[in-house]
Design a protein around this nucleic acid. Structure first.
Lengths: 319, 319
DNA sequence: TTGTAAGCGTTATCAC
DNA sequence: GTGATAACGCTTACAA
């Protein structure tokens, strides 16, 4: 700016006014300055602007694993929404590591980002909540519900319940969830099944590798003749389940049904086509960024937002 | 820092020295300052540091589509490598839009990033090269070769040739590439086929939607009895080709073989398991970031780096 | 070993 | 309308 000021014979603050669209500048000077700026391809120094005290127009985005298609999509939508609000994003991949998560929250502070969108991993820990509270940067939790923090997420128990209803309606009689026992999807799934299917007929399975999955499935399937409904915690699991069932010669959906989670594009091209739960990624990104911008523009204490979003079911051939 | 200086009765530059690990500080003072900084959970203002003239420790990362699994993986690895070098990344998704690409290069300049890693879309245009030249920010092209610019990429023609050799060795007799005619993979593929397979027996196919693919495949397959080798430009295409062939009742690999590109994890769980070309993503990220850091640490003119990397073939059941 | 002073490129607050 | 001037939080001479 100083350089442009010199070249156009005005003061540096005047250049600033012109470049910021301030109206109190003589049209003649405005033109001269703008022309000069264009000619020299001037680009504002965002660091100086941020230092001075106004906003940095930087948003920190902390995700657990960008290489997971779901988070990749989410990040993409967040970037789009951030851009609409004139912000760029600094990306962090926590890799499900609490230490990194903590470290990245510090880095984010160093750059004085205007706000943070995070897929937290320790959102239930009181210690973490305490830490975030002190941060004094607006932060919105995406994908997960965090107590006392703005949260935009998909209601997993509701989604699980929906899957349960679907499988029951399709005539499946005993059920297996692929994933952790405390997974919200499974919690809702079990709840909806309670009283409808004998408790003993709903189980869950965690596995390390494909061979293990195959073994476990074989054992579980042999235990009964009843039609089996299998709910996979994500589409990757579902794909492996399909492959394993094929290997075991199980016909789908006659003997066993499979339903995935995330509704990745792959599912549509499998045989049989995979039924899957679809998360409203775009909506989630939009709501999260919009809430974050609101927080940024209206500092101070507000009651935490709790915004569970509804998933929907893409029922296809596998169930 | 000023605040800490006040609290510990030293000057602000002394605080700066302590925090930067400068040795010329009395141990006693060092301790006092560090304790105070810890107590108040001090975080350096990276904007001020950057403004002052040293590095920002920010890298701009421009990709074409983060929701594509390949670029998601690449971004993840780039983030890891950047972090190893003490840098954070600002992420931009050009969405294959030249206008956005240009705009983002401007944004990147505003933040005075130390360097840029880009998956360029107009890398062959002289105009773009001119623009980048003026940027005076170190920039490395990843994934694509850009004339006169440091480039780290996978040698597509070589990969295509490798696929050709493979399909010939497996006894396929006529060939179809799914993708654009000027795609490097296809160029190399054709070249390797020249003289080995009659030219007329190598074709390419571009399609808009699944129905169109199915039609085109049916027509092409009916034209001859010879065993068909199909080379899909990426695994998503490959998946759709597999589905279409299944729909047409074509047996794989007896009547037709399929080979994909990117070797996504999905391929292993399909039936038949998908053969695919695997790109050295991690190596590419490492080399690109390492070169960028070198440029940052050694400013000035250097001859452009041209580093083609070799892809490898994961041969499975589909070919 | 420590402190003083200048400067990085902005915006904001004043006078004029 | 426009120009001084201060301030943002840091690093880097330079002086003591």
């Amino acid at each position: 700016m100083t350089e442009i000021a010199r070249l156009t014979n005005v003061s540096q603050p005047t250049v600033s006014r012109v470049l910021n669209g301030n109206q109190n500048v003589a049209p003649e000077i405005r033109e001269r300055v703008l022309a000069c700026a264009r000619e020299h391809d001037y680009q504002l120094n965002a660091l100086a602007k941020g230092l001075q005290g106004s906003r940095t127009q930087l948003l920190g985005v902390l995700v657990t694993d960008i290489s997971n298609g779901f988070f990749a999509d989410l990040t993409k939508q967040i970037e789009i929404e951030a851009r609409k609000n004139g912000c760029s994003i600094i990306l962090f991949n926590s890799d499900y590591d609490p230490v990194k998560e903590q470290e990245y929250l510090d880095v984010v502070r160093r750059y004085r980002v205007d706000g943070v969108l995070a897929v937290p991993i320790r959102e239930t820990s009181a210690e973490w909540q305490e830490y975030v509270k002190k941060l004094d940067v607006p932060i919105v939790s995406v994908t997960r519900r965090a107590e006392n923090l703005d949260s935009v997420y998909v209601d997993h128990p509701q989604a699980g319940a929906m899957v349960a209803e679907h499988l029951l309606a399709r005539g499946f009689e005993r059920f297996l969830f692929i994933g952790k026992e405390y997974d919200g999807k499974y919690v809702g799934f079990r709840q909806a099944m309670a009283g409808r299917a004998p408790a003993a007929q709903t189980a869950n399975l965690v596995y390390q590798d494909y061979a293990q999955l195959q073994d476990a499935l074989r054992v579980w399937l042999q235990a009964s003749e009843a039609r089996a409904g299998i709910f996979a915690g994500n589409d990757i699991y579902a794909l492996q389940v399909l492959a394993a069932l094929r290997g075991l010669g199980v016909s789908i959906p006659a003997e066993a049904g499979v339903i995935g989670f995330d509704n990745t594009s792959t599912g549509r091209y499998l045989t049989p086509q995979l039924s899957s739960v679809s998360q409203p990624i775009e909506l989630m990104a939009r709501e999260a960024v919009s809430r974050l911008m609101y927080r940024i523009e209206h500092p101070g204490r507000h009651p935490a937002l709790d915004l569970p979003l509804q998933a929907s079911l893409a029922a296809r051939e596998s169930s």
